[in-house]
Structures are given as C-alpha cells and as structure tokens.
Amino acid sequence: MSTTLEVRNLRTHFFTRAGVVKAVDGVSFTVGRGQVLGLVGESGSGKTVTGFSIIGLVDPPGRVVEGEILFHGRNLATASEEELRHLRGNRIAMIFQDPMMTLNPVLRVDTQMIETVLAHEKVSREEARQRSRDALGMVGIPSPDERLKSYPHQFSGGMRQRVAIAIALLHRPELIIADEPTTALDVTIQGQILAEVQKLAATTGTSLIWITHDLSVVAGLADEIAVMYAGRVVEGGEVGAVLDAPFHPYTVGLIGSVPSRNRRGEPLRQIPGMTPSLLKLPAGCAFRSRCPRADEACLAMPDLLELRPGRRARCFHPHLEGAGA
C-alpha cells in the first residue's frame, strides 16, 4: 500500500507573551492511500493544530518549528506559501468543525464553489458551475441547481456541512483533513454524513484524517487510530485492536469514560484531574499527574515504542495484561 502522508516528529509551537505553547510536540503518523486515520484526543490535545500544520495554515504567533510532513514524499514543512496554496483545496482539502461558520455569510454558494474550482484549474465559468452542481448532487443535496443560488443562511447545519464537503471534493483530493466535522450536527445527520464520507473515500481512494474526540465515530469509520495527549501521540495502531485492548492508561480512561449500557446504575467513570496547561507541562510523561499507574519512572518522558506488531504506545507501564504477552 502506498503512503499518502507521512508526518515525522512534527512540532508546532506558539510563541505567546506568556511563554512558548507546545501545541504539537513530536507527532508522527502515516496515512496510506484510501486509508482513514482517526486522530483522537481531548480539547487542547493538539489535534486541530496538527491538521492546520499539514496544510500550512498555522497563524502567527504559531509556526512549525521542527519535523517533516511528507506528502507523496514531498516535504510540506519547508514548502513555500505559493506551493502550499496550489495544494490546498486541490490535492489536500480540509473540512471544519462548525458548518455555521465555515461558509461566508454574504456570498452565494455558487460563488464560493466556483472560486474554488477556478483557483486551481483554468476552466470556463460555466464548466466550473457544472462541476459545482455535480459535487452538490454527489453529497446528497436535492435540486442542486437551485441550491447553488442560495446563501448559506438558507441551509440547515447538516446541509451546510454537506456543502463544505462538496467544496472539499471539488478537485478529488488525495487527502481530506476533517476537523470534527460532525460534532456540531445531531446524531441522525452525523450518521448520514459519516456514511457519505466513507462511501466517497472508498470509491475515490481518498485518504482521510478524521479529527475527533468521539470514539464511537472513530470505531465505525477509521482504519487506524492515533490518540493524542498534550501535543503528543500516546498510542497508535489498528482501530479495532486499540479499542478492544488499549495499552496506554489514558486510552483506557478515555474508553472507560464512554457511557455504556453494560454499566447501568453505576456512576459514570471519568479521568481524574484536567488536561495540563500546555504553557507549563511538567517534565516526564504529561499524563503522570492523572495516571493511576504513575511512579518515579514516569518523571522521564517515555518513547513511543512498538510494543506489539502494529501497536505503538508511549508508556512505561502499559496495559499489556489482556493483550497476551
């Protein structure tokens, strides 16, 4: 299987007045062609910044300070703004979290779609319009011809997200970065959109990075999973294996805190404490202060090691009991 994207040791830091915020601090993962990677973590774990780093849209005071972002072997971390612009929306597309905010409220949908086509290809306006209409039809928007002439506020949230997805699909990108695209939608719409995206990825061979905090979404959609905590990947591997037998105590806690019917009547489980401030991370493992297994060894930063074939975790005391030694 060929590799679409390989991120190696990515570090994106924000240089604020209060100090350096290490939002992404040594993240590595690969996404194969047609593969779906679920990037999971709490708010502030650096998953969104990772997404923006890939397409070069980290705004000052933040910047990528180290690492390689290899897109078909080409390093995007050192690419010029002009090179990145030609990739964005063309070969790498992004879908945002809040569909209410991503479309410009004062421009018609056709304007916002046609400009995307024309930004990367020299075609006539009429052809660009037809392509836009076809893309709208493809994501399941009824009577796309009329809908093209609408303004964003005339669509519901789910429909707007479909429009955003249609825009992302206009150039049949090789990679789509989806930043919690279903979080703001209700569950039935969420299901429809997930099914739609899965179908599209399978038919066009598009790779997906699906950023979310919702493990159930990842379980149904992703091939691989990478769990992030405080700017680092703490666990990675094939999605079913990780969810069935997580190694890292953080992943264990995350899965444990999903409410389940099997534990009716019991109090909901939670991970004690809060995500540490990225401004003053303690030395060693960032999860140390919240971890039931932490001891002196955790004062040093563990490496992300391949503990089992295809299973990586960053922990000195992983849950290997259930995985068979």
Binding site: G89, F96, T102, N104, P105, V106, L107, E115, T116
Partner: peptide
C-alpha cells in the same frame, strides 16, 4: 472560520481579502 476555510480552499490572498473579508 470562513476566512480560514477560504484559505484552505487554496484561494489567493488577494481574493480572500477583497472578496471574503471586504464584503
């Protein structure tokens, strides 16, 4: 977000400024 999305679509900075922001 709509400005960031416009940039993520690969629009030129001129178009982002004079169409998306300006209006």
């Amino acid at each position: 977000d709509y400005v960031k999305f416009a940039r993520a679509k690969g629009l030129s900075p001129t178009r982002v400024t004079f169409v998306h922001v300006f209006k």
